[in-house]
Amino acid sequence: MADTTNLSRAGAVPAHGDSPLVRRTLIAVALGFLGLFLILPLVLIFSQALAEGVRVYFDAIREPDSLAAIRLTLVTAAIVVPVNTVFGVAAAWAIAKFEFKGKSFLITIIDMPFAISPVVVGLIFVLMFGATGWLGPHLAEYGIHLLFTPAAIVIVTLFGTMPFVARELIPLMQAQGTQEEQSALTLGASGWQTFYHITLPNVKWGLLYGVILCNARAMGEFGSVYVVSGRIRGETNTMPLHVEVLYNDYMITAAFAVASLLALLALVTLAAKSIVEWKIARDMRLASAAAGEAPAPDGESAP
């Protein structure tokens, strides 16, 4: 009865008690803020990029230095994302499934790249590998120069994006415990089979989520790359750096054209992220349903 009463009253006074005016004002403020700070800049980027027409837009992208920047960004991501995925899975696996000394230290240190400003990361790299750095002169004896090369860009990006996959997986794996793995072992599965058939499928959406974030950051990394790249056009400029170079050269349209590619990446990332989030939420629902009520009707009583 209580339900029907609530229903009939629902039209007049909403359940949460706020008047429609308050509710609408709050929504308007939230949407207005979003529009001003997120949507508007995005629209601006694309309108600026296309201001002088589609032809100019594509010419700006097809320009050799731009292509080189795009290529370098893609190559960097292609190296960094797989390496950090492997590292993240290994670290999360070790932390979540085993007990060992120094575990909490490892958890703390994984977060370090997030705590340090990217510019500082770049400076550390210069201190280590620069011409007067700690390791730089020694490497130079063997003819290895890292500073101002694509290798330097890859290394600082590796450092900066290291936590994404591990941080995503650690809580997930810890929540899932080790019973399923132990179960697989008693059934005769090898360690690798257990990982591949049991652990990995259970964390696949969390893993994908981490990879997406890692990729977005790897392509968008600016501060540390700015310090170590030397910004040699066509050689050590990544897309974010190239945008800055073009902008400083008053090539506004070209700058916005390249920026629009990065913005596009952000949009794709967001879309992928929300799909994966939806999948994770669905898995969680299934898991909690597994723990809670039992939908299947039948004779519990085995005859």
């Binding site: 399923e180 072992l185 008693t186 005769g188 259970n202 898991a287 597994a290």
Partner: peptide
């Protein structure tokens, strides 16, 4: 563990949640 060939039933079942009943048993 694997070499000992023991059948072990865990307190909270520890079924593989991403596999069907058939695949669980076939594992």
């Amino acid at each position: 563990v694997g070499e000992r060939r023991v059948g072990f039933v865990f307190q909270h079942y520890a079924l593989f949640r991403h596999m069907t009943v058939f695949d669980n048993v076939a594992f």
